[in-house]
Structures are given as structure tokens and as C-alpha cells.
């Protein structure tokens, strides 16, 4: 399929969905609070843009802080697990076992102990730390041993070899984990908002549904979707910048890698 055709393919699904939605409105004429029209959702979003922006900022902050914590803790843990068999034996099985507990079920308990924002941050972090750890460990382990051995014979220290061979080899796998983590973090923050919060898009969705402001709730959900896509694209962009060799034949001018 040519590039132009693929461009055209992109909006097909959402347009089809909108059309089907509008068709239901025309044919069934449901009450506004039951199913508002696409236009009504659009105008609700416009009228309440300040509120949406306020709550979006809250959710985005929780998501990003949670993601940051998961990334920092997950990478340190993964580096340790990949480097030491003893640490792997002591820690890795528990990391895996911890996933058997539905993380989201911890949110109400945590809300008892912690303040709202902190609960949301921690639930987001817990939900997205697992893909970070697993993909980082696999990436750090899976590199081509020949490369490491070659630079060792050329005089590289263990530290140099780790940083310049093992880590770059792990990045593609890690970026896959990050894409998952970015999306999971939004989910974690929003579900924790349902449990207890005084701000955030999850909170806004909940109170507007309760007040039969379905159009506003749907607008909040649309913004959540937007945030998820945005974070995903951000990670994809970081991946392109960090791994230029995966996408091009020659070194780009903006690459600082030497």
C-alpha cells in the first residue's frame, strides 16, 4: 500500500464510528443524558474547556509522576536483576508474583492510608512498572554476546562495555515496554481517581455521569484518550531520537552519539 493510501486509511475507523453514532441519534432519538450526539459532546467540551483543562492537568501530573517513578525504580531493579543471579533469584519471582494481585484492587486500601494524589501516583506507578522491568531485563540479557566480547578484547572495561554495548542493545526492547507503560499509567491514575479524588478526568467523568451530564463525561473520556495517544507518540518520538540507526542509513545531523 502506498504512503498516500495509508494516510487515507487512518481516519476511516473514527469517521465510521462517528457516522454510526450520529445514525443512532437520528433513528432512535435517545434522550440527551442517555446518549448525547457527537455535536453535543463537542460543544460540552468547548463550553467546559477550562474545567477539562484543570482536570486534565491533574491526571497528566499523576500519570507522569507515576511513570517517572516506575521508570526510575524499574530500571534500577532491572539493571540489578540482569547483572546478578543472586538478586534475580531473590527478587524477580516476587516481581512476577506481585502481578497476580490485581493492582487496581489495591487502590481503595491505599486511599485509606494516603492522600488522594499520592494514591493515584502510586497506583499508576505500580501498574506500569512491570512492563518496564520485564522488557529492560530481557533487553539487557538478550544482547549479542559477540559484541561485548569484541570490545572487551579492544580494551573496554566492564563499565564501558555495559554502557556502550549492553544498554544500547537493550533499548529497542525497553522502548516497547515504555509504550505499554505510558498507556497503563493513564489507566492506573484514572481508576484510582474513581476510588477517591477531588480532581482529575476520572473524577470529572464520575461526577458528570452522576449529574446526568453525559456529554461532559464523554468529553472527559475523549481527552483521556488523547492523553494516552500523546504519551505513546512521545515515547515513539524518543525512540526515534535515541535509535536513529533503526530508521535510517546514515547518521542524522541531530545525533550526538559518538
Amino acid at each position: 500500500m502506498s504512503r498516500a493510501w495509508r494516510r487515507l486509511a487512518l481516519p476511516v475507523l473514527p469517521l465510521g464510528g462517528l457516522l454510526a453514532w450520529q445514525a443512532v441519534i437520528w433513528l432512535e432519538r435517545p434522550r440527551d443524558w442517555l446518549l448525547p450526539s457527537p455535536g453535543a459532546v463537542w460543544w460540552a467540551a468547548w463550553d467546559h474547556r477550562d474545567r477539562l483543562w484543570f482536570h486534565a492537568r491533574a491526571t497528566l501530573t499523576e500519570t507522569l509522576v507515576g511513570l517517572g517513578i516506575a521508570l526510575a525504580a524499574g530500571l534500577v531493579l532491572a539493571a540489578g536483576i540482569a547483572a546478578s543471579r543472586a538478586l534475580e533469584a531473590a527478587v524477580y519471582p516476587w516481581v512476577v508474583a506481585s502481578q497476580a494481585v490485581p493492582i487496581l484492587s489495591l487502590a481503595p486500601v491505599m486511599a485509606v492510608w494516603l492522600d488522594y494524589t499520592l494514591t493515584q501516583i502510586i497506583v499508576a506507578a505500580l501498574l506500569c512498572v512491570f512492563p518496564v522491568i520485564v522488557t529492560a531485563v530481557d533487553g539487557l540479557r538478550g544482547g549479542d554476546a559477540t559484541l561485548a566480547r569484541t570490545v572487551r578484547t579492544l580494551g573496554a572495561s566492564r563499565g564501558w562495555t555495559w554502557w556502550h554495548v549492553t544498554v544500547p542493545a537493550a533499548l529497542p526492547s525497553l522502548f516497547s515496554g515504555l509504550k505499554l507503560a505510558a498507556v497503563f499509567a493513564v489507566t492506573g491514575a484514572v481508576v484510582a481517581e474513581y476510588v477517591g479524588a477531588d480532581r482529575g478526568l476520572g473524577y470529572l467523568t464520575e461526577i458528570s455521569t452522576a449529574q446526568f451530564e453525559t456529554a461532559l463525561a464523554m468529553a472527559a473520556i475523549a481527552v483521556l484518550g488523547l492523553i494516552g495517544v500523546l504519551l505513546f507518540l512521545l515515547v515513539a518520538l524518543a525512540e526515534r531520537l535515541a535509535l536513529p540507526h533503526r530508521h535510517r542509513a546514515t547518521r542524522p545531523t541531530w545525533s550526538t552519539h559518538t
Binding site: T146, L147, T150, V151, T153, L154, H164, L243, H245, H257
Partner: peptide
């Protein structure tokens, strides 16, 4: 290791470095 330079069988360039950077390692 370090006094004997090994050129291993098969590919051994670092994929994330340019040709010149690989040669310079």
C-alpha cells in the same frame, strides 16, 4: 582481555554507531 585484539567470526560492528565511529572504537 585487552592486549590481544580479537576480530570475531561474523558481524561484530556496533549497530548503533556509524562506520567511522565503529572503526575508531
Amino acid at each position: 582481555p585487552g592486549r590481544l585484539a580479537l576480530m570475531p567470526q561474523g558481524d561484530s560492528l556496533l549497530p548503533w554507531r556509524t562506520l567511522a565511529d565503529n572503526v575508531a572504537v
